[in-house]
């Protein structure tokens, strides 16, 4: 039996459901009652009750695509900031090039401050996350725009089966890559397109808990395109 309105904002400690439900993320059970454990949107998927958080940091999960910034170079790898409470390591063995310590100058591959797109190779409660850049599309990122938003809003930015992100790509004509840790890269044909895409991403972050967001964003982009068109013809 559901005791809270699905798709509505719930607070920690709010009673969500009672009885035979499966326990999803950010919910906990006392006896037969299920309560929320954070501020978020109450979602029901079949028999499973979950709370989709509206805020919160990034906790790595194996297989996640994450964007990071190199903050230190060690003997056999790099320390990478992935906007989580745990510092990540990218071992030299997970990059192309000769193996073994001191075989090459690691700063020629990644220097401090470089951005990269990587995958979480291993992580558990006892050890810091390990990254890899072996894989298609992974590696150093030296062009494009970096957009930082809350990691909790990433599922909304991607949308159900990628609906939101593919709409954004189509409507703005930009290539967008989204890291699970709340960093997105945007590459566009013109600065205007990029600005529009960035704006749209911020709009998703701000209004993540509202309904009809995809349509509203499509409209916003269409409007800006028209305004841009008029401005261009006037200056011409």
């Amino acid at each position: 039996m559901l005791l809270a309105e699905p798709k509505h904002v719930v607070a920690p400690g709010e009673l969500l459901a009672e009885g035979d439900h499966l326990l999803g993320d950010n919910a906990y059970r006392i006896g037969t009652q299920i309560f929320s454990a954070c501020v978020g949107l109450f979602e029901v998927d079949g028999n499973r009750v979950t709370v989709v958080p509206l805020k919160g940091g990034y906790i790595p999960r194996v297989g996640d695509l994450v964007a990071g910034r190199v903050i230190d170079i060690g003997l056999s790898g790099w320390t990478v900031d992935i906007r989580s409470p745990y510092l990540a390591m990218l071992p030299a063995s997970e990059t192309p090039g000769p193996r073994g310590p001191r075989r090459r100058d690691l700063s020629t591959t990644f220097d401090v401050g470089d951005m990269m797109l990587s995958e979480v190779l291993a992580f558990d409660r006892t050890r810091d996350p390990l990254l890899t850049i072996k894989g298609p599309g992974l590696g150093k990122i030296s062009t494009g725009r970096v957009v930082e938003i809350s990691a909790a809003k990433i599922p909304r930015l991607i949308g159900r089966k990628g609906s939101m992100i593919s709409m954004l790509k189509n409507e703005t004509g930009c290539q967008i890559t989204v890291g699970q840790n709340g960093i997105a890269f945007v590459w566009g044909k013109s600065p205007e397109n990029e600005r529009l895409a960035v704006e749209a991403i911020y709009m998703v972050e701000r209004e993540a808990h509202t309904r009809g967001l995809t349509d509203r964003i499509r409209e916003m982009i269409a409007k800006s395109n028209v305004v841009g068109e008029i401005a261009r013809t006037q200056t011409a």
Partner: peptide, 11 residues
């Protein structure tokens, strides 16, 4: 704490 999105049993 709740606003920071930190999981907690109750307020």
């Amino acid at each position: 704490l709740a606003d920071a999105g930190i999981p907690m049993r109750e307020i």
